[in-house]
């Protein structure tokens, strides 16, 4: 099965949407106690970039993804997608955004499709709002999309006859059907075998590369993270570090804090005094051994 991209870039559709968050805080109100899922996230994703959001369960990755998708408003901070500040956007603007610019791929392939429709029918269903938003001319045809994910022959099959990998590819075709400028994918490879996982990730990479679509993938799988040119690690509701081309970096926050990577904490437990020294034009951390 091939996954050759045959989807030509659109003349009018955005090549990719930049994403910026500043001081993003989100608190879930519960019965008796509140839980802060995000505690000040500053994140910038360039237009046409592909990044992975990493982190353990409960770190806040999915919450961040939902805020980027405009599913709900943050408790504090701003989220800007393209030119639209999602924290101030009206319901209508958000609807238009979802119809044309931002696609969210939920965790679990089945949650992204209507189970009683075929893949082709799901694509048609997904394109309805985009067609009304006067983007009909730019929308790719169903055969094109199915061909793009290698499911040309399975477009009319009931979904329950597809393998998990095929279903996830069908889901990808559906979320790409509106030719979004931003594709948000929550654990797109969970429960897939390696082969299927690689096919899905390859497809995502090509969408990013050839269409310029900005792709944000949430994953806790390090193997998946290797496919990402840039990764951002979320830890305890904050940006805990970044990885670029296999290198791990700590990231200085907007208010000047520097969260250390988790593995550094083994060496530098909380309360350790460090000195920041400038030597030869570079800053070095020096642990103050004598802390008495």
């Amino acid at each position: 099965m091939t996954t050759e991209l045959i989807l030509a870039p659109s003349a009018t559709a955005p090549r990719g949407l930049a994403v910026h968050t500043r001081g993003l805080v989100h608190v879930y109100r519960g019965e008796g106690r509140d839980v802060a899922a995000l505690a000040g996230v500053d994140l910038s994703v360039r237009a046409g970039e592909m990044i992975g959001l990493l982190g353990p369960s409960g770190a806040g990755k999915s919450t961040l993804l939902s805020l980027l998708a405009g599913l709900f408003r943050p408790t504090a901070g701003t989220v800007v997608v393209g030119d639209l500040d999602l924290t101030k956007a009206t319901a209508s603007e958000l609807d238009t955004l979802h119809a044309t610019d931002v696609s969210l791929m939920l965790q679990g392939a089945a949650r992204n499709v209507l189970p009683f429709l075929t893949a082709a029918q799901n694509i048609e269903f997904a394109q309805v709002a985009a067609q009304r938003a006067e983007r009909a001319g730019d929308l790719p045809g169903t055969p094109t999309l199915l061909g793009m994910v290698g499911l040309s022959d399975l477009g009319d099959e009931p979904l329950d006859r597809l393998t998990p990998g095929q279903l996830q590819l069908a889901t990808l075709a559906v979320v790409l059907s509106t030719r979004p400028g931003l594709l948000l994918a929550d654990e797109p490879t969970s429960r897939l075998d390696h082969e299927a996982r690689d096919r899905v990730l390859a497809a995502l990479a090509r969408v990013n590369r050839e269409l310029g679509t900005t792709v944000v993938v949430v994953t806790h799988d390090r193997d998946v993270a290797r496919w990402m040119p840039r990764t951002v690690t979320i830890r305890d509701g904050r940006i805990g570090g970044e990885g670029r081309s296999g290198e791990e970096y700590a990231v200085v926050t907007a208010d000047g804090f520097l969260p250390l990577p988790a593995h550094a904490l083994e060496v530098l437990p909380p309360g350790t005094l460090v000195r920041l020294e400038l030597e030869d034009g570079e800053y070095r951390l020096r642990v103050e051994r004598d802390q008495s």
Partner: peptide, 12 residues
Amino acid sequence: ALARLRGRGRRG
């Protein structure tokens, strides 16, 4: 939820 995620809004 899917209808809303695909931009159909509440009316849709």
